[in-house]
Amino acid sequence: MTGTSGGRSLTPEERRRIIDIAMELARTGQTGDLLDFLDHGVPVDMADADGNSFLMLAAYHGREETVAALIARGADVNRRNSRDQSPVAGAIFKGEDSVVRTLVAAGADLDAGSPTARQAAELFGRSYLLEGAP
C-alpha cells in the first residue's frame, strides 16, 4: 500500500481495516472491488494475520473468478499460510473442482505444503481432480 491518504500516512488501525476489507472481498468473491484495492497499491500477495493471502481465501471459498483474476495479476499460486497449507490443497479440501483446475493450470505445486495437494486429494477421495497433472 502506498501508505498515504490525502497526503498523510495511514495509522496502523487504518491499515489493518483496509487489509480486513480487502480480505473479505477475496473471501466473498467481490472481484472488481478487490482489483480496485490492488490498483490503489494493495499488494496482490498481501496476507492476513494467519498468513492467508487473497488467493488462499478466494480458493478456499470457491471464488473461481477471483482466483483467476488474482493469478492474472501475478499472485503466487504456491504461497502457503502460517499452517503450511497451499491454496490448491485448500480448494481440494473444500471440493472446489473448478478452482483446483484453475490453480493446477497456473502451475500450482501439488507437492508443497502439509498436507500436499496430492495427499489432500487422496484423503478426501478427490484424486480425480489431479488426473493428468504433472
Rank of each mutant, 00 (worst) to 15 (best):
G113S: 10
A47P: 15
S9R: 13
P12L: 03
D36G: 03
S114G: 10
T66W: 03
A47D: 06
A58W: 01
A69G: 06
G3E: 09
S82D: 15
T2N: 14
M23D: 02
Q30P: 04
T66Y: 09
I18V: 12
A26F: 09
A112D: 05
V77I: 07
G29S: 07
G113C: 04
D109L: 01
D48P: 05
N78S: 04
L35H: 14
I18H: 08
G90N: 00
D39C: 14
G41T: 07
E14H: 08
M56I: 07
D109G: 04
A49L: 14
G29N: 12
V42Q: 09
F37I: 10
A47V: 08
N78T: 08
L103Y: 11
R118C: 05
R80Y: 11
V104P: 09
D36C: 15
F93P: 02
F93G: 04
E64R: 02
D39I: 12
N52T: 09
A106S: 02
A117M: 01
V44P: 06
L10H: 07
P115D: 15
A26E: 01
V77R: 01
E24Q: 15
A69M: 11
A75I: 04
R8S: 13
R27Y: 02
A26D: 08
R73K: 09
L70A: 14
L38M: 10
A68G: 05
V77Q: 07
L70H: 07
